[in-house]
Amino acid sequence: MDGFTPVSALVGGAMIGTSAALLLLLNGRVAGISGILGGLLAPLTRETGWRAAFLAGLVLAPPVYAGMGGSLPPVTVEASFPLLALAGLLVGFGARLGSGCTSGHGVCGLGRLSPRSLAATGTFMAVAVLTVLVIRHLLGA
């Protein structure tokens, strides 16, 4: 075990959960990032405004965090640019085909015990673990 940070993980997780809860209580919408972004790619609808606003908040979080005096946590992107492009393509396509991602299925769906979200979360967790196992330990990258 290395770099285990249980307290900040729980606090940050609770913030993410609070965000999902508030979007439901205020706007009546599920905080699924891929669904919100995917919805923005469709023609303008009444949903366009809040979706764009949500994503703007998400993107502006680091400068706001730094502005509040927080020191930005370290970010290490190990993947090369071609690998990032391939991974992004798979993540975007897979999230839409599977009706959700880590937030929509993982945080919101598990929170309401949705069988679909349980199946999806179990599947993407297992495949991601296998992917890392193959890349890091079998191919030795």
């Binding site: 393509l89 798979l90 993540v91 897979g94 599977g98 991602c101 991601a128 992917t131």
Partner: peptide, 10 residues
């Protein structure tokens, strides 16, 4: 979809 997503995530 979840499997493809998991592959990209990993």
């Amino acid at each position: 979809g979840a499997a493809i997503f998991g592959l990209g995530w990993g």
